[in-house]
Amino acid sequence: MTPFLTHSGIAVPLLNDNIDTDQIIPSREMKTVSKTGLAAGLFAGQRYSEGRTPNPDFALNQTKFDGASILLSGKNFGCGSSREHAVWALKDYGFRAVIAESFGEIFYNNCVRNGVLPIQMQAKDILNLGARVAVDLPNQTANKIAFDIGQGDKTMLIEGLDMIGQTLIHKANIGAFFERDKISNPWKY
């Protein structure tokens, strides 16, 4: 996974609340059993008009947002279906960070697992960010505005770690846990 330290890019606002993962990538766009090649399906429902031509009203199709790599949104971004394809599609399109008032829990974790930085901020701060945003994860700022992030998530993102590998470091603890549990809760096994 690509480590995330700092990133500066064009920010595109999609400020509605409750943008769900069905909107981020509609089911019909999840065509293969694959984590890549999903950019074309990103926001497909709103991004395209009939005949799959770009819908000029949708922000991503406007020239000023060409090459946008930071997404701004409202409350509960990424709620709904757990489909990780939502993050894979954002990443495939070129997004590195999403800044929103709050996130769907599963989507938030999926971002961290895939090196996309989810930043939680108050609405008024999001509105003040402007057209270009410079994110500094080690110092936890976006255009100098401070944000909070869990220490575990921060480390994962900064170091771009393979989490399964990291967890398998604790293999002995895990083995011992299950051995003990088999004795105290034999009905589970």
Partner: peptide, 20 residues
Amino acid sequence: WGIGSTDAEHAIVTGTLRVK
């Protein structure tokens, strides 16, 4: 609880998940 596909892989392989 519901998770993503990457976490599912993690749970299957390690028998655990990292959770806040």
